[in-house]
Design a binder for these strands. Structure first.
Lengths: 343, 343
DNA sequence: AATCGAAATGACAGCGCTTTCATTTTGAAT
DNA sequence: ATTCAAAATGAAAGCGCTGTCATTTCGATT
């Protein structure tokens, strides 16, 4: 280690510096950025030249503090590595960015305590709205959100008791539908593969099991506390077959698990869908292109992000008008492909 | 649309509110958060009770403005949906979070203009350091980073002319090594599949082509301006075979492309590695578990994130000590698996 | 040339916190 | 009981910007 100079340790230029160089007051400089039409072209030019010369970058912290408008929206998702949230976030960004809002995203890694901390951190940045995943916030987190005074959206799943606005889909219903679909395809020894770290996966499983029992069948559920991944899918398939060699269908609570299970089947010479049918969840891009293509329960991830963003923008700009219904069900849809027999 | 009340529109509690309720001055409240050992236990208790009652959350904007310490680090990556950057970011978070720093992440979607804007936005938040991907910043972006006065790390790839600190690997060398590996496996009609949106992929290709020509072979390169994805891999395989039915090996510039190509081969009854060998890039988690398992050039993504974070923390806390060498090569490694013949 | 409203500009206070320095309180030592 | 350093607390200024309101400048009109 040696100690050479940082690239340039000098103080960053401020509004005042630009004003002095341009020979105007700092209010005028401020206006050049916020309401240029109020400034004469001559002054504007001088300010812009001065700003360029000083490589001036406005201090958003100061601006936000003074105007109490941060133009940011806080977002907490369970995972950044899961394709599901990528689609959601990218829709969010697409809609928000155009309106001059910026999303501050933190991940909770599927832990309620992390989520609580993330919410506190984000609220410290005074976002103009908050978006959280799911409906299982801790009591403290819920209270913080309520007290924050900003609009809150809970996404991805539905609840009867939303904090504020709720946009998502019913996971028990998805579980129910998945089971019906597999039954319709003629399966009878149906297993479920899941990662119970995800509260929504647990609720899907509940809908699934309920309907399974209603049909006089016994649930076969295999799970792991590890986060979902392709390799976990392969691993769980091994465990499943060791315990229940006669399964004829598997519903995987994520497409990654489905893909891993499919790879492991291929490795063992198990034919899909003839020996075992496989149904995924989410319908990620890879489902359609896999070989065999993977049947999956498609979730409206992009639409959830977009709807969330649109409603918030309407709320933030449009004089606080909120949707008539604070709970919006965006549904799901089963896409039948080659990894399941035809119904 | 109707216009019901937001959850609570009242002003958020401030330091002063807490102080008043606790019967102390606001400085004392501030100290309870920053240097609790300077406050008497009695006062501390009263402050904490008051803060809890008011659901007080410190305003980080104000704190940052007053102390000019934001405890944030700005990060720009090309894509949030790509597993490569997820590993990098998660290493970054793991190391930074423990030290009380928070990463503000923006994505450029592989566009230099977006990157420039993202850098400006992040600098507006006054981060204490900046991390950018690659070495192809626009002149303006480079100038902003230099002027910012904070440490800057360029990651993922190496350059002879870093802005400040540079941590990565040599992509031309990776291209060279990939070709050598395939040659050693006995391949002769070697194709390259890539998405030139990614500047690093272009440099890998250069290393690859140079060595190919040096061996008297003609480059077969198939590419698309779309971002990399599994389905793109399948699509490009179709195009490739239409133009060059006799290829015996394909190096895919991303594992997603490799997976897509593999699916498409399976669909067409092409055997891997017997008819065509496939080599990926990055060695994502799925390579090892795929069937057949995918050979890939492994990149030290996690290590890059961790090293970057550690060096920055050392720099920010440890009185500005910088690494002896401002350029750190973390290398790569070829993992031979079943999708290529044995060398 | 005088008048007047609109356009352009600036002075000043304040956003919620931290920093600095001064003051008060405490408790141990005489 | 005094003394004095250490511990605890507070008053005031200021971080860089914006909001508000007052003032100046300008061009058009009579």
């Amino acid at each position: 280690m040696n100690t050479h100079e940082p690239p340039s340790r000098r103080r960053r230029a401020t509004l005042g510096d630009v004003a002095r160089l341009a020979g105007v007051s700092s209010v005028t400089v401020s206006r050049v950025y916020r309401e240029p039409q109020l400034v004469s072209p001559a002054a504007r030019d001088r300010v812009e030249a001065a700003a360029a010369e000083l490589a001036y970058i406005p201090n958003r912290l100061a601006a936000a503090l003074a105007s109490s408008q941060t133009h940011t929206i806080g977002v907490v998702v369970p995972s950044l590595t899961n394709g599901v949230f990528n689609d959601f976030l990218s829709a969010l960004h697409n809609t928000l960015l155009g309106a001059g809002f910026q999303a501050l995203v933190l991940d909770s890694r599927y832990l309620a305590a992390n989520e609580e901390r993330a919410i506190a951190t984000l609220l410290g940045h005074h976002p103009e709205a908050m978006i959280v995943t799911g409906v299982d916030q801790t009591a403290t987190a819920r209270r913080m959100l309520e007290q924050s005074g900003v609009p809150v959206v809970q996404t991805m799943e539905l609840t009867d008791d939303p904090i504020d606005i709720n946009i998502g889909l019913s996971h028990p219903a998805a579980g129910y539908a998945a089971l019906r679909f597999l039954l319709d395809c003629g399966a009878r020894r149906i297993a479920h593969m899941m990662a119970p770290l995800d509260a929504r996966a647990v609720r899907r499983r509940e809908g699934f099991e309920r309907e399974l029992r209603a049909n006089g069948l016994d649930p076969i559920v295999i799970h792991s506390t590890k986060p979902t991944s392709v390799s976990l899918g392969a691993e769980l398939l091994g465990e499943l077959l060791a315990a229940h060699p006669d399964v004829d269908a598997i519903w995987c609570s994520s497409d990654y698990l489905a893909l891993g299970a499919m790879f492991e089947c291929a490795r063992r010479g198990i034919r899909i869908p003839d020996d075992i049918a496989i149904l995924g969840f989410n319908d990620l891009e890879l489902c359609a292109v896999a070989h065999p293509s993977i049947s999956s329960v498609a979730t409206p991830r992009y639409e959830m992000g977009q709807t969330t963003a649109e409603i918030l923008l309407e709320l933030l700009r449009g004089s606080g008008r909120r949707p008539a219904d604070r709970r919006i069900d965006l549904g799901f849809e089963i896409r039948a492909r080659d990894s399941t027999r035809r119904p």
